[in-house]
């Protein structure tokens, strides 16, 4: 990751962080609707990966998808408008937070069905192979999804067919309110793919440089048609499972310690230490993100709701 990359990644993380913190507030204020899951604390994964991809690479995500969509290039104002159910939204108000799609930027979509995106991503990798292209498919899923039958089936298929798929597991240790230890005896998701014998790495997902370099290595190989790969990013969500979650199940966790491991704080500090940035320049990156969020909020609020006729219009292609 050179210093230009690092600046781009830092800006991406700041954009995601400020966007999601605003979304959480707007949800509580009743301006954003639906089931909202934010990735505060986990931005290093989205930013360290998606910023290395092209528009023709297919990215799939799950219920915690805002960061992946933004990092893949979805315009923030249209993501915000989507969460507000507006016609100008990314999906014209038909999807909402868990179903963001931006075909133009290769974000083929989020799903509210945990793990359901994993086989679909393999399908995009297969399409790339059948057409002889060098595009790749990337799918983000949680540690909870890794116990799903469709996900385990996909591990087998992906290794059997050796398709250019990069599986990115964000292991935040929890599925909703339950720690991983209560769902499986397999501690690391990378161990779950061990029998399939494909390249896998477990990294500190809050160290965005580590995420960048491991993912970049896999990506380079996937471009040549190799695959699959699993990148397990150990991370931590700093807020509840969903906006409004009292998170009582996590009392025991030392929130202060995790604050120190915040991927944004870590990258920012390192860039200041190595002289790439000074405090003022770093603050300016955050300020720019905040301004973009403000504009997105206004854009969403000023946009109309879609016409009722839209429901029937898009039921069939």
């Amino acid at each position: 990751m050179n210093s230009d990359d690092a600046l781009r990644v830092l800006a991406t993380m700041e954009r995601i962080r400020h966007f999601e913190e605003r979304v959480a507030r707007l949800k509580l204020a009743g301006e954003v609707f639906g089931l909202i899951h934010v990735s505060v604390g986990q931005e290093g994964v989205a930013a360290g990966t998606c910023t290395q991809l092209r528009d023709d690479d297919a990215v799939y995500s799950g219920h915690r998808a805002h960061g992946h969509a933004l990092a893949k290039g979805a315009p923030m104002n249209r993501v915000m408008a989507e969460l507000m159910g507006r016609e100008t939204g990314l999906c014209r108000g038909m999807g909402g937070s868990m179903h963001l799609v931006d075909v133009e930027h290769g974000f083929l979509g989020a799903t509210g069905v945990v793990g359901g995106n994993v086989p679909m991503a393999l399908g995009s990798a297969l399409a790339s192979r059948l057409r002889g292209e060098d595009s790749v498919a990337v799918v983000f899923f949680g540690d909870g999804a890794a116990q799903g039958g469709h996900v385990l089936e996909t591990f087998n298929l992906a290794s059997l067919w050796q398709l250019p798929l990069i599986l990115v597991c964000e292991n935040n240790g929890f599925a909703e309110f339950t720690p991983r230890s209560a769902h499986t005896v397999v501690e690391r998701v990378s161990d779950a793919v061990a029998p399939y014998d494909f390249a896998r790495e477990t990294v500190d997902g809050n160290d965005v440089r580590a995420v960048w370099s491991s993912f970049g290595g896999f990506l380079e190989r996937a471009r040549t048609g190799e695959g699959p790969f699993l990148l397990e990013c150990l991370t931590h969500r700093l807020s509840g499972h969903y906006v409004g979650d009292p998170a009582a199940y996590r009392e025991a966790l030392a929130a202060d310690e995790w604050r120190k491991l915040d991927p944004i704080v870590r990258l920012r500090t390192s860039l200041i230490e190595d002289g790439t940035l000074d405090e003022a320049a770093a603050d300016a990156i955050a300020a720019e993100a905040i301004a973009e969020v403000e504009a997105a909020e206004t854009f969403g609020r000023d946009s109309a709701y879609p016409p009722e006729s839209l429901t029937a219009e898009v039921a069939y292609a």
Partner: peptide, 15 residues
């Protein structure tokens, strides 16, 4: 389950 997902993904990607 997986092969249905694979087919859907491939269809979404233009196949």
């Amino acid at each position: 389950a997986a092969i249905t997902g694979v087919a859907i993904g491939a269809a979404q990607s233009g196949m």
